[in-house]
């Protein structure tokens, strides 16, 4: 059964891209733990992670600071990339990303409201971001459902709701300028001061949503064939699209709750992975999870070491590296097109 499934999903989806991605993730994670204000040898890192050397200074640095940060990078990259892949597939729109269905605007509004109303309640920010993202997405879904949930309606209602939420954000900043301090960090995105306590609720949300999305991979494939074909194959396209979008909102909202706005990951990683493994949903989702995790972790590493001891917000590095890379990919894609 297993070997048959592999043969059936095979096109460019050989195991090679996955091996490379797994190695990249492992390398990124290890380097992310080794690098920092103090360089810690990989051997020492492995000893500490395997449970030996628990009471050294290095162990404290790793277990309290670098490991939560690395886990945060891996988790956020994975969740945002998978959310992006699902949204692009469901909306049949290659430009779609978590921000299109209101995640960024909703989370941003919630964070600014929280900063303005309770400036000292910093621990509440991630939860506010998560709640805001979900509120925005469910508003978009509710409007879209009322009007038939066509992919164009979804995108348009996403744009409309995003602009309303952004307007509220700007209004709050106008009346309470001090709120901008907490908001600017969140807007650019970053992983400084992460703890396992902060990560743990997001981890469970992301894990469950990811497994559910994977279990719907065949449905995603059929949905990609277009609404008419999908429904003629007995798929209830409308409720399925809503479920998948809600799962993407959970993935992206959970990630944004601790990482800030890293929307670009959700746009570029699925595009890169489509080139590497094709559009078959199961391998695509798995590769997006690995690719997103590796990309965000590497970018966070660069953000920390490029101007050490100063640290850049990871969102800036992601955009500066990812943007040009994405443009090159688009140019190559245009040249390589066979049938338009």
């Amino acid at each position: 059964m297993k070997s048959w499934r592999i043969s059936c999903t095979r096109q460019k989806t050989e195991s090679k891209p996955f091996l490379i991605l797994i190695l990249l993730v492992l390398a990124a994670a290890l380097l992310s733990i080794c690098f920092g204000a103090v360089w810690i040898e990989p051997g020492t890192v492995l000893r500490i992670l395997s449970g030996r050397d628990r009471f050294t200074v290095e162990a404290n640095i790793i277990l309290l600071t670098r490991l939560p940060r690395t886990c945060g990078c891996l988790l956020a990259g994975m969740a945002l990339a998978v959310a992006g892949a699902v949204i692009q597939c469901v909306l049949s729109n290659p430009l779609a990303a978590p921000n299109i269905i209101g995640v960024n605007a909703g989370a941003g509004m919630a964070v600014i409201l929280c900063t303005a109303l309770a400036p000292t309640a910093l621990t509440a920010l991630p939860f506010a971001a998560f709640a805001g993202a979900l509120l925005a997405v469910f508003t978009v879904l509710a409007i879209a459902e009322k009007t038939g949930a066509s992919k164009m309606t979804l995108v348009l209602s996403g744009v409309a709701v995003s602009s309303i939420f952004s307007a509220v954000t700007d209004a709050v900043i106008t009346f309470v300028p001090e709120a901008l301090n907490g908001y600017s960090d969140f807007r650019i995105g970053g992983f400084a001061n992460l703890t396992f306590t902060k990560l743990s609720p997001a981890f469970w949300v992301i894990l469950s949503a990811f497994l559910l999305v994977l279990s719907l991979s065949n449905e995603l494939d059929v949905l990609m064939l277009g609404r008419d074909t999908a429904q003629s194959l007995g798929l209830r396209a409308k409720p399925l699209r809503l479920i998948l979008l809600a799962l993407s909102a959970a993935l992206a909202g959970a990630a944004v709750s601790f990482s800030g706005m890293l929307g670009f990951v959700g746009l570029i990683v699925p595009h890169i992975m489509r080139k590497a493994v094709g559009e078959n949903s199961f391998p695509l989702l798995c590769s997006c999870a690995l690719g997103g995790a590796a990309l965000v972790t590497f970018c966070d590493l660069l953000a920390r070491v490029l101007f050490s001891p100063y640290e850049l917000p990871v969102g800036i590095v992601l955009s500066l590296l990812g943007g040009p890379f994405f443009i090159v990919l688009l140019l190559r894609q245009r040249k390589g097109r066979i049938h338009d």
Binding site: C8, T9, R10, Q11, S92, D221, M224, L225, G226, D228, T229, S232, R274, G278, E279, N280
Partner: peptide, 15 residues
């Protein structure tokens, strides 16, 4: 039902 217009995803024909 064979629809008149369909999306063409980058998926292997057999799939």
């Amino acid at each position: 039902y064979m629809a008149q217009r369909r999306n063409t995803p980058n998926i292997v024909a057999r799939r």
